[in-house]
Amino acid sequence: MKITDIELSILESPYHYGMSSEATDSRGPQYALIVKVHTDEGITGIADCDSHPHIMKAFIDAPSYIHAFAEGLKYAVIGENPFEYDKIWTKMYQSSFYQGRRGAAIHAMSAIDIAIWDIIGKATGQSVSVMLGGRNHEKILAYASTLFRNTPQEMKEAVQKYRGLGYKAVKFGWGIVTENPLQIVSLVEAARLEAGPDMDIMVDGMWTSDVKLAIQLVKELEHYKVFFVEEPLKSDNLAGYKKLANAVNARIACGEQLAGLYEYKQLLEEGDVDIIQPDISRAGGLTEVRKLVTMVEQSGKLLIPHAWTSDILTAASLHLNSYQKNPVFQEFCTNDTPLSRELVTNPLQLDSEGYVHVPSTPGLGVELNEEVIRRYAIDTLVVNTL
């Protein structure tokens, strides 16, 4: 089997990111990138990518500048056997040496890598979790992932909503607390009062560069039994994270903005946070994050994947969680937007106990809704090396 070409579709949502007064929930990214990797045996792998689609397209389709060191990722992928995923990953990484081998380069690599694992599963008739090395769990407890509401009363109403939908956990992020970090305490207090003791609450958002303020706020949040506090500091502030993590009892989480094992190794060793949060579509794909699972387990930390796009990335994250020995949560984005809710024909659903089941059909286990892709596509390109 050989990879023949890569198809890239940039989609545009009719909605802007954020919380709109007329929306039923938060609205996610305005753009999405759908990646299809085609093979000579008619098997196609799919992925989406939680990065700027136009930039990802350029990284994949750029012409060759210096062979094998500075060229589009297509030169490292097309013509290769998808089962040689490690070889392909290494070739992609090397091909981006002279245009920034981390960051955006690994984001683009990640989408291709996820699609390759989808091919591997489809070709063998197995789910991705089996092909990763072990389907250890059939369902993962989900948390509703949404944005902070503006008032305590709106926070209570949001908790009522998610509890009514069957969620046993909810995470509020960003929004108003990025403008005034001090508001987070009263908002979380209201959420906890409404949730009672049996619902897990998490919080997210880059609040401050003031480490002492972060320590103060997290200590106040501890009174409301938050399960974790995500990225209260900039992700590069490793010294700040270590100081924060060692000063509080609440779990500190970080990692969705990082790319590649080297950056995660630094976070583990220098930041000493409690929870690592790789976004598979940014961190290096399943090939890289599969290795990160072992690294995190050996460090005595937890790994909870970040997933804020569509059911395609959520499915990939579910397979990674299934592969983990001790998964904790599956982030389940509640965005009210077609680029989150309508991209697949078999949307993932919460069960009556608050879990999402790991797809069991071959590959990722979700299939694209081609009609929706056509409806929102603003740019489609078939990439090859001819």
Score class of each variant (00 low, 15 high):
1 M>R: 00
2 K>N: 11
5 D>H: 15
6 I>R: 00
11 L>T: 06
12 E>H: 10
15 Y>R: 12
15 Y>A: 10
17 Y>P: 08
24 T>N: 11
25 D>S: 15
26 S>Y: 15
27 R>T: 15
30 Q>A: 15
30 Q>K: 14
32 A>Q: 11
36 K>I: 06
41 E>G: 00
43 I>S: 01
44 T>E: 03
46 I>C: 04
47 A>Q: 08
47 A>Y: 01
50 D>H: 12
51 S>Y: 14
59 F>A: 03
63 P>S: 10
69 F>Q: 05
76 A>M: 01
76 A>H: 00
80 E>L: 00
80 E>I: 00
81 N>W: 04
90 T>Y: 08
91 K>N: 03
93 Y>Q: 07
93 Y>V: 02
96 S>W: 00
97 F>I: 14
106 I>C: 07
108 A>S: 09
108 A>T: 02
109 M>L: 15
113 D>S: 06
114 I>F: 05
116 I>R: 06
117 W>R: 02
123 A>F: 03
123 A>V: 09
129 S>E: 08
133 G>D: 06
135 R>L: 10
139 K>M: 08
142 A>M: 07
144 A>H: 01
147 L>R: 09
149 R>Q: 14
151 T>N: 10
153 Q>K: 14
156 K>I: 09
160 Q>T: 13
161 K>G: 11
182 L>W: 14
187 L>I: 09
188 V>F: 08
190 A>I: 10
193 L>C: 04
193 L>I: 12
200 D>P: 07
200 D>C: 04
213 L>V: 06
213 L>E: 01
217 L>F: 14
231 E>S: 06
231 E>G: 12
234 K>M: 08
235 S>V: 13
237 N>Q: 10
237 N>M: 07
245 A>Q: 11
247 A>N: 11
257 Q>L: 10
263 E>P: 04
267 L>Q: 08
268 L>G: 11
268 L>V: 15
268 L>F: 10
269 E>W: 10
269 E>C: 13
273 V>F: 09
273 V>I: 14
274 D>S: 13
275 I>M: 03
278 P>D: 03
281 S>R: 01
285 G>C: 04
293 V>L: 07
295 M>A: 12
295 M>I: 08
302 L>R: 12
303 L>R: 04
305 P>H: 01
305 P>F: 01
311 D>A: 14
311 D>E: 04
311 D>L: 09
326 N>Q: 14
331 E>D: 04
340 S>A: 11
342 E>H: 14
352 S>M: 12
352 S>W: 08
353 E>S: 15
353 E>H: 12
356 V>M: 03
356 V>K: 04
360 S>R: 13
362 P>C: 02
365 G>D: 05
368 L>W: 11
374 R>W: 05
374 R>D: 11
375 R>G: 06
375 R>D: 07
385 T>W: 00
386 L>A: 15
386 L>Q: 15
